[in-house]
Computed example of a mutant assay.
Amino acid sequence: MAAAEAISLLQTQLWLGFVVFLRVGAAVALLPGFGEQSVPMRIKLVVAIAFTLIVAPALPQEPPDLSINSMVLLVATETVAGVLIGLGVRLFTLALQTAGAIAAQSTSLSQILGGAAIEPLPAMGYVLSVGAIALAVMAGLHIKAAHLLIHSYVLLPMGLFSTGSDVADWGLTQVAHAFELAFLLAAPFVLMSVLYNLALGVINKAMPQLMVAFVGAPVITLGGLFLLFLAAPIMLSVWLAALDQFMASPFEAQR
């Protein structure tokens, strides 16, 4: 009798672990650092299993009916929930890459080392992305991700679909916030580019015989690198604060 109860309990826990793995695996595949294309699939699998072992015992709700008939619904709902969580966090990486692209385009550095990453990025976007991922991991990204996944079962209950209108509104809000963050981070480079080109136009108007293109190109490149050296710590700190705010309250309106 005791053996039968132990086997039944073990079977229930295994099914529960599998259901949790569906959400965790989908989220881990999109998380910064853990879900990068350069990370081998075996490492991603190990990370997903490790997160599953952390999240499953801490579920804040009773597991639903884990019979075979309900597994199809659970596979769909948990995978969608994990993808939503992972995409919400991944947008912050895309925001930083967009900021790097805007900054590089403003300072004539958009083509240098463009193929250094698996996805071609300008040099500034690549440097900022690597620095941001390193900073996030050093700041405890794995702990914050575990808290987010555990908390997600309160916001997105197991076995239930979110309504399409809610998901659409949340997605539009997150995309708009990502672009807002990207333009905010790239604002110093855009401002410098506007002022520099305005000054260059005035100089060219005053001295038409001067080849301002030959004089101006090295200056804007050096100025962009110097500004990146000064602004990168502030940009990364602002980005990390925004990421922490999202992971603490992923489904609240961003301010």
Results as ranks from 00 to 15, higher is better:
168 A>L: 13
134 A>C: 03
177 H>R: 10
213 A>G: 11
228 L>H: 09
229 F>N: 09
173 T>N: 11
78 E>I: 03
185 L>H: 09
160 L>E: 14
49 I>A: 12
27 A>D: 00
229 F>I: 06
103 A>G: 13
10 L>K: 13
241 A>M: 09
131 G>L: 10
194 V>W: 10
5 E>V: 09
251 F>R: 10
188 P>E: 07
115 G>W: 01
153 Y>A: 02
199 A>R: 07
203 I>T: 14
146 A>H: 04
113 L>A: 15
119 E>M: 08
73 L>K: 13
68 I>W: 15
73 L>I: 09
180 E>A: 13
104 A>K: 08
46 V>H: 05
50 A>H: 04
117 A>M: 14
120 P>F: 10
197 N>C: 02
85 I>C: 04
155 L>P: 00
120 P>T: 12
247 M>A: 05
159 G>W: 01
187 A>S: 12
198 L>I: 08
13 Q>K: 14
10 L>T: 12
38 S>Q: 10
54 I>F: 02
48 A>N: 04
202 V>M: 14
194 V>R: 07
190 V>F: 05
15 W>V: 08
243 L>R: 11
162 S>N: 04
50 A>E: 07
96 L>T: 09
56 A>F: 05
152 S>C: 10
139 A>H: 04
160 L>N: 01
62 E>N: 03
144 K>L: 11
31 L>F: 15
105 Q>Y: 03
